[in-house]
Amino acid sequence: MDKAQEKDYFESLISLEYNFTAGSATTRFLEAIAKGNIVGQKCPKCGAVYVPPRGSCPRDGVPTLEEIQLPDYGCIESFTVVHIPIPGNPIEPPFVSAMIRLDGANISFLHLIQEIALEDIRIGMRVKAVWKPETEWTTSLENIKWFKPTGEVDINPESLKFISS
């Protein structure tokens, strides 16, 4: 008996294909980042700036129509040291994944921190984007390779609360 016949079951994988749409707000963000610009959206009620924008303020349930140009620098809101390799991920562990809060934004997004010793990374540390060469830019936040420290004075983590109400 060969190996295939020994099996008393068979594997039947199901795959589904989707034509994914990011939504109009996120589409505009992705088109801007393809040109090296970071665009957030501001809530008309609470004034919070979201990046990447999803087209709505989940606090107030209203569309965020006003677009805000944001800088490519900010600070580390939170971070973790990754020791376990992720299949398909080209980065060798250990590396740092951090929540980056850009100046002028009210929420953070996940990105990498490089060009610094792991043990020196801390919450509140000022960081700046390191971009890929312009010829490699696409409609992706991966146009930014990683963030690196700027050497400026840290931000007080208390000031990173979502919004003062």
Partner: peptide
């Protein structure tokens, strides 16, 4: 609905 996502349909 084209590029509109679910949130943009619900709101």
């Amino acid at each position: 609905a084209g590029s509109a996502n679910e949130v943009e349909l619900i709101m």
